[in-house]
């Protein structure tokens, strides 16, 4: 694929995301009256309903969608390349669940420590990825083994989450939404805690993209080209955990973003992770913002959790991948 078509795809992705963000800010239970917002902003009228909706509800929500989508899609690219497996994705592998478990546990044990949530989520994600990597470090793992390990981890961590919610039913505001993934409870505070981690994670991911390219050829190949595979793997592992953890800490267990988006982008742009990582981040952001908007509008005034919509998209996509890769992976 030539350079000019790459540029076209960048321009399209960027424009798509901006348009979706604008729509996401405008549409909802009430259609935002932009002139009124502008007027309130000009006059410094902080009591304006329009301005308050924008600043306290829509903006955190849309930015939350952008950050969570970008983080999960980038983590998906990293995990797929690192494990050499197209079925890898943060939620398939139980990484989301690991992060979710520790978020709920931390929220139950230290109810007032909001800043702790992204850290706890990071530790949970790290725990899950670490277990996977330890179990598959020699010679990689077949698709079946990896997916089964993911199922096992998800089951264990889900049981953990159920336990926490049984003992501390009020541990987390909107716990039911958290379990399927939702942006309804995104607060500016939670977003501010998580955003630095995500921005740092994305920057590191792009810096490590070249190493990821090499590692995607296999451990032997990367070592024989002089790569310090252990260090690179550890760094990528930390970055993936950072991204997933930070996203889960405010958006809950959003599923399949990290699986679908990297596949579509790889199909369009090829396998060079230097392009794939930023493009997937943009694509992931666009997907979550769009899905969240649909989730708000489809059954208005009732609201679906965005996670439900993503699962409805992602489930069939996963089945398609399994069937398409049957001969090669499973």
């Amino acid at each position: 694929m030539g350079r000019s078509s790459d540029k076209l795809i960048w321009a399209l992705l960027g424009t798509l995301l901006l348009v979706l963000m604008l729509l996401g800010l405008t549409l909802g239970a009430t259609v935002l009256d932009w002139p009124a917002v502008w007027q309130a902003w000009q006059t410094g009228d902080t009591t304006s309903t329009e301005l308050r909706i924008l600043l306290w509800s829509r903006l955190p929500r849309v930015l939350g969608g952008v950050l969570a989508g970008a983080a999960l899609a980038a983590a998906g690219v990293i995990l797929q390349a690192m494990l050499g497996n197209p079925l890898a994705g943060p939620n398939v592998l139980g990484v989301n669940a690991g992060a979710g478990f520790l978020v709920l546990l931390a929220a139950a044990l230290w109810p007032d420590a909001g800043a702790l949530l992204p850290v706890a989520a990071f530790m949970g994600a790290l725990l899950a990825v670490g277990i996977l990597l330890l179990l598959t470090i020699r010679g990689g793992a077949s698709g079946t083994a990896l997916v089964l390990l993911g199922v096992a981890l998800t089951t264990i961590f889900s049981a953990g989450m159920d336990c926490v919610l049984l003992f501390w039913p009020d541990a987390y505001v909107g716990a039911a939404s958290f379990l399927v993934g939702s942006l309804a409870y995104v607060t500016p505070e939670r977003l501010c805690f998580a955003a630095p981690y995500i921005l740092l994670g994305l920057a590191l991911a792009v810096l490590l993209a070249r190493e990821l390219n090499l590692l995607s050829l296999g451990v032997d190949m990367a070592s024989s080209l002089g790569q310090n595979v252990r260090a690179v793997r550890a760094a990528l592992l930390l970055v993936a955990a950072l991204l997933v953890g930070a996203a889960v800490s405010f958006a809950g267990l959003l599923s399949f973003v990290g699986l679908i988006v990297p596949h579509i982008m790889r199909f369009l742009l090829g396998g060079d992770n230097r392009l794939l990582l930023p493009a997937s981040a943009l694509g992931g952001a666009a997907l979550v913002v769009a899905a969240d908007m649909l989730a708000r509008l489809l059954f208005a005034p009732y609201e679906l959790s965005v996670g439900i919509l993503l699962a409805a998209l992602g489930g069939p996509f996963f089945i398609y991948l399994v069937i398409r890769n049957r001969s090669k992976v499973l």
Binding site: G84, P86, N213, S216, L217, G218, D220, M221, S223, S224, L225, G226, Q227, N228, R266, F267, G270, G271, D272, K328
Partner: peptide
């Protein structure tokens, strides 16, 4: 050092044939 050895010896073991990288990449 690993990079110095890599300038001397190339190993083509199990080849990843599923990558979407181009031949040039």
């Amino acid at each position: 050092k690993p990079r110095e050895a890599a300038k001397q010896v190339a190993l083509l073991g199990q080849l990843n044939n599923r990558t979407e990288l181009t031949v040039r990449q």
